[in-house]
Design a binder for these strands. Sequence first.
DNA 1: GGTTACATTTAGATCGGTCCAAATCAATCG
DNA 2: CGATTGATTTGGACCGATCTAAATGTAACC
Lengths: 350, 350
Amino acid sequence: MPQHTLIRRKITLNDIAASCGVSRATVSLVLRGSPLVNKHTRARIEEDLRQQGYVYNRAAANLRRRTSSSIALVLNDLGNPFFAEFAAGVDEALGQAEFVTLLGSTGESSARQQTVLGSLVEHGPGGIILSPAEGSDAEEVLSAIGPQMPLLLFNREPGGPRPASSHWDLLALDNQNGGRLATEHLIALGHRGIAFFGGHADSSSCRQRRAGYVEAMQAAGLDIPADLQIECMPTRTEAAHRCEALFAGAHRPTAAVCYNDAVALGLMLGLRQHGRQPGRDFALTGFDDIAEAALSLPSLTTLCTDPRARGRQAAGMILHRLADPLAPATHTVAPVQLVVRASSCPPPFN
Amino acid sequence: MPQHTLIRRKITLNDIAASCGVSRATVSLVLRGSPLVNKHTRARIEEDLRQQGYVYNRAAANLRRRTSSSIALVLNDLGNPFFAEFAAGVDEALGQAEFVTLLGSTGESSARQQTVLGSLVEHGPGGIILSPAEGSDAEEVLSAIGPQMPLLLFNREPGGPRPASSHWDLLALDNQNGGRLATEHLIALGHRGIAFFGGHADSSSCRQRRAGYVEAMQAAGLDIPADLQIECMPTRTEAAHRCEALFAGAHRPTAAVCYNDAVALGLMLGLRQHGRQPGRDFALTGFDDIAEAALSLPSLTTLCTDPRARGRQAAGMILHRLADPLAPATHTVAPVQLVVRASSCPPPFN
DNA sequence: GGTTACATTTAGATCGGTCCAAATCAATCG
DNA sequence: CGATTGATTTGGACCGATCTAAATGTAACC
């Protein structure tokens, strides 16, 4: 039996108007729930809309109204659970405000970031939430999105001087405070030789976390040997490899503040391979509180940044700016919270 | 010093046309790289476009051309790294095809899925990639997106009868084959008592994986004792708790095929707590090849599904359908690949 | 010179909505 | 009864692009 699929043109306002014997304008008023239209007319039209399976064409409406109902979300690494959670939060909050999320991911390439931004801008988002790719520059971002586009920077700032004319908002994590909290916690447990492990100094978030560590160490009158400042790529495998650097120098640390959870989990691996049991022979902390942190063995003491909540917050901030494009630029620092788990043990001979 | 921000209207085709002393049509031809327009005119116009910082309004163009340059991506759980990677792959491939991704996440709620689909459809995507929320129904999906909308189902099918008139494509993982491969691998190592561990029978993917296990066991003439089919929530902690069920019955298994990596990692934990060393006293396999699988101790033998590649594939499939809306529905099963690591050891007395 | 051929440009309708000012209509008022 | 009022409805321009068919300009041909 041959299947006969009826190919219908899409139903528009005109079709409804014609079939109801009213004008386009009236139907439009019904769609927008205007109180101007008569009760009976409204009922009749609404019925017809349902029957014919009408779907609203928001693009057409936006064109005429010179509005937008979308926000672009451009992330440097969607594969990272931290950003995935963030995206989920953004989308959740935008959805509630009847906005839609235009996604773009750059894979940490600033060239790709330019392309992605350019393409997204053509789709006319009301604003952009951007977590800049590493090595991207403020000037080039400006040239990609133009001076008028509302922009919220998340997590880090692009390099280079901030263009004068643009008022961009910023949502950052309280990295310095986080670094300080973790360090103070270890000091309170009795540790004296504490390393800062992982990350790169050219990342602003790493610099800030380390600054917090330095602050706490100095406040406690502890010294900060250069051979206990160990850089590495913020990945598990790299961290595992760099483990030995911890014990290569003259100072034998009993604890480490790690750049983030990935690094901390990698370091745990490395410690085991060197015959030390993390959480018993050596204490460490992470940063981010990714899902695995609670499940690892030992469970990881870390700083909770609640990326999903950050996403909702970011969405709120960009919507705020849409409502008031001339407001002065905002610079928000989101609090982080120390979550104490098993990985931060007292020093061995305490 | 008061900052004076010049608020300029957005530049349109008309502005460029006027400032160049040509018609809108000519500028439009230049934008689309038509060979019709004179070399000098083109150069002059292109210069002007650049100078004035013109940005193309794709929405307006799409309206007139009755085309779309976006694809909606609706996921049941963006927080899950598997889907996040998938999304990254989708976006990557769509971007290359000059399409933009409209994101929506449903958090496994079919009610929310309806809302999200409804909202996205109004933005006029060319098609939809949907990983259905648990408990969502084919009929309701149909009513949300209409019969005309190209749809690619990923990972699972919505419940209820498939609506007759719609030709929806499907991209699934080869769960059954994966289950079979893992089981055959264990059998080849010499195991005879092999359990299937974790997951719930009401999940289609779990049923399929177990079917592969059963297939391999039967082909080898091994029996499949009911007390070695152990269900549990697909989480690490649950899996750790259910470990003892493996050894409670009369049959003492020497190996287990686990529903997925999370379960396998949890089971490793449980085994250790019961004094058995996974990868030496007991063999096990996972499914998904999440990042941790390679890094755990022992490293985990598992099935690689390459979610990023699946994402690219899904994007390709939906674009294909856009190009040919009347083609018959596709039902693609993506291959999975056995990755042998340390967790699958031979049985103890072999 | 008039015609044809070709290259280039353009006027004006159109996509599917929204907006505005004006039209329609019934009811109320002086 | 004509005028005023308030409630509804509407024609037509408009958003920023594309499309078609026709107009324009120039060089080549008989």
